[in-house]
Simulated scan of single mutants.
Amino acid sequence: MGTKDKLSYERLISRVDYYKEKALDLEKKLVFAEETIERLENEANSDQSLQIIEEKEKELQLLRTQVEELTKKVKRLEEHEMEKRMKSYEELLKSIQQEMNDKDQQIDLYQQRIKSMEKRININRTSEPVFEETETETAKTEMQKKEGFNCISYFDYSVIFTKDKKGFVRGSFYLENTGTETLENPYICFRFQPAEACALKGKIISLIASPTQDEMSKSIWMYMDNDWAEKAKDRGEMWICPLRETKFKSGDKLTLEDFQIPFKSKIDENITVEAFVYFHKQNYRSKAVNHIAINF
């Protein structure tokens, strides 16, 4: 409550007290007048006494009218005071509710960060996936397909050239569970040839960069910021995974939308980008059905 509101409130209280005292004083006068009238009626034996009685009755009626008006004013002041208090309480409740909403949003952000940090810890504990296409690995993949694990992934992209044979690839990467079993938390590896071309941008966040609440709420994917992922980047591999726990059942799809891969012709005459998907919990891995090829 501001200083101005406090002074107005104190004036209102003083005015109410004044009118209450005034009403009490008038009631005392009314009682005194009634007693006087009664005494005069008992002593009245002349026209002068009757005239005095009439005057006293008029004075009494006037006093009654004043008492009624003062009573109404007191009632209005009390109602005004109550309305003012109610408005003050409503504003206080609104402020408290806003603070609670802000705290809830902060709690949600902290919970998301905690889950993300837990996921980073789990990623750090995960052994590095290796995508060597040997006969043994191919046979293992085929066996997993028979057991109900199967994921089809592919690129949808376009190559945009700018000046001096520079440019970028813009596209999306799609995953679809075509098996019968539920798949969880896909780790996606984009392998670049040559390794110097390794770069991937888009709606992907890095927990090391301390993303904002808005970025956390709008993002689905994050970079895998751990030791072996950094070493893999030197080999030309970029690893990402979902920001939150992700499960997709048979027939469900996941998408990495609107990614960009910048390139320069000075790196090499040709650039290729392959993709591999690895499901750690199910020990299942698959290769994308197509790849990105840039020829200068």
Rank of each mutant, 00 (worst) to 15 (best):
I204D: 09
A197Y: 09
N185L: 03
M100C: 03
Y154W: 15
Q282Y: 02
L109M: 07
I204Q: 13
E128D: 04
E99K: 06
E57Q: 15
E230A: 09
T36E: 15
P186K: 10
G202M: 05
D47P: 09
Y9E: 13
A275N: 01
R11C: 04
N283M: 11
S153I: 00
G236Y: 04
E230D: 10
R285F: 06
L109G: 00
N290W: 00
K22S: 08
Q61L: 14
M1A: 10
L93P: 02
E176R: 06
N226V: 00
L62F: 13
L183V: 03
N42L: 12
Q260A: 09
Q193N: 15
E69H: 12
K94R: 14
V277G: 02
R39S: 15
G167S: 02
Q193I: 10
S172D: 08
D258C: 03
K29L: 10
P186R: 05
R39D: 15
T272N: 05
F279C: 06
M100S: 03
W228H: 00
K20F: 10
N42M: 12
T134Y: 04
N295D: 13
D227T: 01
K84N: 09
A197C: 08
K218L: 13
Q48L: 12
K233H: 05
D252Y: 08
F276C: 05
K72A: 12
K73G: 00
W239C: 03
S116V: 01
I208K: 14
A288Q: 02
K201G: 13
L254N: 03
N177G: 01
N295T: 11
S210K: 08
K166R: 15
Y278M: 00
N124M: 10
H291A: 12
S206N: 13
K203D: 15
F161M: 10
I188V: 13
T272K: 06
L26P: 06
L60I: 15
K203Q: 15
S206L: 07
S95N: 07
D225G: 05
I13H: 13
M222I: 05
L26Q: 14
L50V: 04
E10G: 01
I261L: 01
Q213L: 08
S158N: 05
G179V: 00
K56H: 03
K87Y: 04
S265T: 09
K266M: 07
F279W: 09
E27D: 11
Y19A: 03
L254V: 09
F296V: 07
E128F: 02
A232N: 03
V277H: 08
Q111N: 07
Y89M: 05
D108G: 03
E147I: 04
L26D: 11
K253R: 09
L77Y: 14
L62W: 10
E69C: 06
G171K: 03
L109A: 08
A199E: 15
H291R: 07
I107M: 01
G148I: 05
E83L: 06
L207N: 14
K266I: 11
T180D: 04
Y187H: 06
L7Y: 06
S49T: 12
P186Y: 13
Q61D: 15
S49I: 02
L12K: 09
Y284M: 02
S153C: 08
